[in-house]
Design a binder for these strands. Structure first.
Lengths: 199, 199
DNA sequence: AAACTTATCTTGACGGTGTCAACATTGCGA
DNA sequence: TCGCAATGTTGACACCGTCAAGATAAGTTT
């Protein structure tokens, strides 16, 4: 029975996530519907509900995947042996590059759809917390290296610094007050704003 | 014919905007539907379509109103005779206060729903541009007063600075990485990050 | 191998959405 | 007063998320 039409799909969970990923990448989150997704994967309307409690759960899974991707990316960077200042600069560039190349996932990870309109899954909350903790720990190092300001706790500085990056990403992604070509110059200026050493 | 049921409503446009405003304030933008809105106002499903081309247009109108509100608020502040540094600090506090107290409108003004998923009205674009221009002009003054960094054009500094405020607002509003009580301390730290004078 | 259980997938149905088309009513200018 | 444009109405359509009930396959126990 190697025929194309099998009753059981094989690994629907993975297929759903993969297709959903590429669907939102191409057409945006708001145009993703469970029914279309099921159709693309080649399965009936309600089949996905055996793998995800509801649409919110599926979106959370996508966001969670995003957190692990992003963390992996940044952890890889931190392994490099470079002057800490350069490391930080590359970190910032990488952060915005990720937001740019995975804009829809980024929106899901930090956006309103899940965190305000929806209800974040426990495991999503865990993933986001871990990402945040990794960041805060590194902020402490950056403070000690006199790169980030040391006039407040790592938590506070971590929050404000990340908020700055996040705001930049959002303006860029939403296309308000920020032309696409401006990004590079923008990022450089933001780095200057954030770094004590360049003052 | 002063009876409650009149065929013509009076000023439906205004009523729609008012009701929509308070509906989103209470239940969030995503739960606002044209049908429910019409029902609240006491009019049939499709009546609003004689006043707004579609839902997007109505949301744009709400956002536009927000821009004028916000600009009014800030212009009032600038009239005060205070040391420029204090003025800037109050500006930042006021910005986040506005975002906090009109969170749903703020989301509409700067968020994805209109700027990415939807299509901003011409007049909305105009309003946002004006707000931005006012800001950039003031940034120039702030640079001359040595409050904001002068190592780049007013445009660039204006973009990055605003992005920082915006990111803070979003983290706060979406409730990620930021407890409600943290806001005040957060804003103070952000001001320290942004201001040259406090370095 | 047969029987039973569980995971997976199916169709049908319900109430909700935005919005188009066709028609009714009203107020205002000629 | 007539007629037209503005404003309101109901009906219809194609979507949406998701629940309920039943079909089918795979896996487990005897």
């Amino acid at each position: 029975m190697t025929n194309s039409k099998k009753y059981h799909h094989g690994d629907l969970t993975k297929s759903l996530l993969d297709s959903a990923s590429s669907l939102i990448k191409e057409h945006g989150v708001e145009s993703l519907s469970m029914r279309k997704l099921a159709d693309v994967v080649g399965v009936s309307r309600t089949a996905p509900y055996h793998h995800f409690k509801d649409k919110n759960a599926l979106l959370c899974a996508l966001a969670e995947k995003g957190f692990y991707e992003q963390e992996e990316l940044l952890c890889q960077l931190l392994k490099k042996t470079l002057p800490t200042t350069d490391l930080f600069k590359q970190y910032v560039h990488l952060y915005l590059e990720y937001a740019q190349q995975h804009s829809e996932t980024y929106d899901l990870m930090y956006g309103r759809v899940i965190w305000k309109a929806g209800t974040p899954t426990d495991s999503l909350v865990a993933a986001s917390r871990q990402t945040f903790k990794t960041w805060i720990d590194w902020v402490e190092t950056l403070q000690q290296a006199n790169i980030l300001p040391a006039d407040n706790s790592p938590l506070r500085i971590g929050q404000t610094t990340w908020a700055s990056l996040h705001g930049l990403a959002r303006f860029y992604l939403d296309g308000i007050y920020l032309d696409k070509e401006d990004l590079s110059g923008m990022v450089d200026q933001m780095i200057k704003n954030l770094c004590r050493s360049t003052h």
